[in-house]
């Protein structure tokens, strides 16, 4: 599904150039659940942003579903992104002004799904995440665990092929964190590819494979059994 090779990304200020990704290459197959680990500043978030097409690389190639996207402009990236990728963040990133239902509905609006179809699909996914009873609440009225369920609901409502999760349990206690990991595992078992950045060895154990980064390069790969 994903094949990147010799990917490079620099951050420049007037005097210093920092290498965030240094000729990084890796592949992720469809249906895989990959965890990316590494110390702060190793390039995890940069990699995730590029994989999610929120940012573009300075050099190298990024093939997504057999399409080279490294040189795509923002509009093309946005098109590809909204149909194929769902995001889950450590800090949930729900829109405070919208209700649970409206937050989950948002991606469907932007992909042009008809209103009646939207209601059906949002209800379906809220049901699955067991937060149907909270549909008319605002994010700040929910617990952290519930907020993350809403965020996952929003990430999957468009039935993306890939979910990118950035420390999805980072703001949660261990019980809620385990619930979230179970949810992701379920999704993966139903065929969704998942790439997760995490600091937690515990969470990483839910994945099939761990890629460890240091200074923008892959230093080790562990295959989980």
């Amino acid at each position: 599904m994903i094949k990147i090779s010799n990917l490079e990304k620099f951050y420049r200020t007037e005097e210093v150039e920092t290498i965030a990704l240094n000729k990084l290459s890796m592949e992720v197959a469809t249906g895989e659940f990959v965890a990316i680990m590494g110390p702060s500043g190793c390039g995890k978030s940069t990699l995730l942003n590029i994989l999610g097409m929120l940012d573009d690389p300075d050099a190298g190639s990024y093939v997504f579903n057999e399409i080279e996207v490294a040189h795509f402009n923002e509009r093309k990236r946005a098109d590809l992104r909204k149909h194929n990728i769902g995001f889950v963040f450590q800090s949930f990133n729900l829109i405070d002004e919208l209700t649970v239902f409206e937050n989950v509905e948002l991606p469907l609006i932007y992909t042009g799904v008809a209103a009646s179809e939207r209601v059906k699909r949002v209800e379906e996914v809220l049901d699955k995440m067991q937060i149907m009873h909270r549909r008319n609440h605002y994010p700040q009225q929910l617990s952290g665990g519930q907020q993350q369920r809403v965020a996952i609901a929003r990430a999957v409502v468009n039935k993306p092929k890939l979910i990118l999760a950035d420390e999805p349990t980072g703001n949660l206690d261990s019980s809620n964190g385990n619930d979230v990991m179970e949810l992701l595992t379920d999704l993966n078992e139903q065929g969704t590819t998942i790439i997760m950045v995490t600091h937690s060895e515990h969470d990483a154990r839910y994945s099939h494979r761990i890629i460890r980064l240091l200074d923008g390069q892959t230093v080790m790969e562990n295959i989980m059994v």
Binding site: L54, R75, A78, K82, N93, E97, L106, P107, Y110, N158
Partner: peptide, 14 residues
Amino acid sequence: GKEVAVKKIVGARR
């Protein structure tokens, strides 16, 4: 910033 970023991530065009 967050609201706009989230909207863009879930598919809003400029």
